[in-house]
Deep mutational scan, measured.
Amino acid sequence: EETYEVDGEEQLKKVEKMLRDRNLDVEVEIHNGKFVIRAK
């Protein structure tokens, strides 16, 4: 499992696309105004 923490939606979209391109399962949560992306 990998976890990424990003600020802002633009970064979120980039990271999310990169992970989905690797066929990973992606979950996004918001913690303290930051996006936390978990990939399995």
Rank of each mutant, 00 (worst) to 15 (best):
E1I: 14
E1C: 15
E1L: 12
E1P: 11
E2I: 13
T3A: 09
T3W: 15
T3E: 10
Y4V: 04
Y4G: 01
E5D: 05
E5F: 13
E5S: 07
E5I: 15
V6N: 03
V6I: 10
V6D: 03
D7S: 11
D7N: 08
G8Q: 06
G8K: 05
E9N: 07
E9Y: 14
E10S: 06
E10A: 08
E10K: 04
Q11L: 13
L12A: 14
L12Y: 08
L12E: 02
L12D: 00
K13G: 07
K13R: 14
K13Y: 11
K14E: 13
K14P: 01
V15M: 11
V15A: 03
V15G: 00
E16W: 14
E16R: 08
E16M: 15
K17E: 10
K17A: 12
M18Q: 09
M18Y: 12
M18E: 09
L19M: 04
L19I: 05
R20D: 04
R20E: 05
R20Y: 08
D21T: 01
D21P: 00
D21G: 04
D21I: 03
R22P: 03
R22V: 04
R22L: 12
N23A: 06
N23Q: 09
N23D: 12
N23M: 07
L24K: 06
L24W: 11
D25K: 13
D25L: 14
D25I: 15
V26H: 04
V28E: 00
V28S: 01
V28H: 00
E29R: 09
E29Q: 09
E29V: 12
E29K: 08
I30R: 10
I30Q: 09
I30T: 07
H31V: 15
H31N: 08
N32K: 07
N32V: 04
N32M: 06
N32P: 01
N32Q: 07
G33R: 00
G33W: 00
G33E: 04
K34M: 10
K34Y: 10
K34F: 08
F35D: 01
F35T: 05
F35V: 07
F35G: 01
V36P: 01
V36D: 02
I37D: 02
R38V: 08
R38Y: 07
A39W: 11
A39G: 08
K40S: 10
K40T: 13
K40L: 10
